[in-house]
């Protein structure tokens, strides 16, 4: 190692113009991507339970076939030209954020392990000196039982913080709620990646 990694600093409260990408909260490109379209919505809360209304939520995920749109994913599964797998949304006054995306397929883990379908989530906000990362998993997914990351968390209550909650579908579009708690009761499990 020859160079010092540049340290992180907070995104601050005034990022909206700099990071504004209105189209990036819909990963389906208006419904062109292959797979089951889903909606994900949730709220971000602080240690007082107050909404965090100045945060950036980013997601990164595999496509419906379980392949990432990246040169290091060399699986022989189809890439979807209409699906890039990256999204960004800002939280609103109520701490809420929302994405429209595709339910990802399972992706390989280390060794012979398979990972349950999941969405990688990153949070940036005023007061966060560096980003927080976590994962969203889907409820009632059989592969959750053997997912290496979920199973590395011993406490079932903590493990549950990574599980989205199914809500009433919007027409034929399944909806999931994924609230993120930065601190205190119900604090989401965040990762050291």
């Amino acid at each position: 190692m020859t160079r010092t990694a540049t340290p992180s600093q907070t995104v601050g409260p005034f990022f909206h113009d700099g990071l504004s990408r209105p189209g990036w909260s819909d990963l389906t490109g208006g419904g062109r991507a292959a797979g089951q379209v889903i909606r994900i919505a949730g709220r971000l809360r602080d240690g007082d339970g107050a909404p965090v209304d100045d945060a950036v939520i980013e997601i990164w995920q595999a496509n419906a076939a379980g392949r990432y749109a990246h040169p290091e994913d060399r699986q022989e599964r189809p890439l979807d030209p209409a699906f890039r797998g990256f999204g960004r949304a800002f939280t609103g006054r109520d701490g809420g954020y929302a994405f429209t995306t595709i339910r990802p397929g399972p992706v390989p883990g280390r060794g012979n392990a398979w990972q349950a379908p999941h969405i990688n989530v990153a949070v940036f906000a005023r007061g966060l000196l560096k980003r927080l990362t976590t994962r969203l998993y889907f409820p009632a997914e059989p592969l959750n039982e053997t997912d290496p990351v979920l199973n590395s968390i011993d406490d079932p209550a903590l493990r549950r913080t990574l599980l989205a909650v199914a809500e009433a579908a919007e027409g034929e579009t399944p909806r999931y709620r994924f609230d993120i708690v930065l601190q205190g009761e119900g604090e989401t499990v965040f990762f050291a990646v």
Binding site: V52, W60, V107, G109
Partner: peptide, 23 residues
């Protein structure tokens, strides 16, 4: 003070999910 998680981050091994990203 009200936004920093209280628990230390949970270490995970890097997988395809972490070594890939948007282009």
């Amino acid at each position: 003070v009200k936004r920093a998680p209280r628990r230390p981050p949970h270490p995970i091994v890097q997988t395809l999910s972490e070594v890939t990203g948007p282009g």
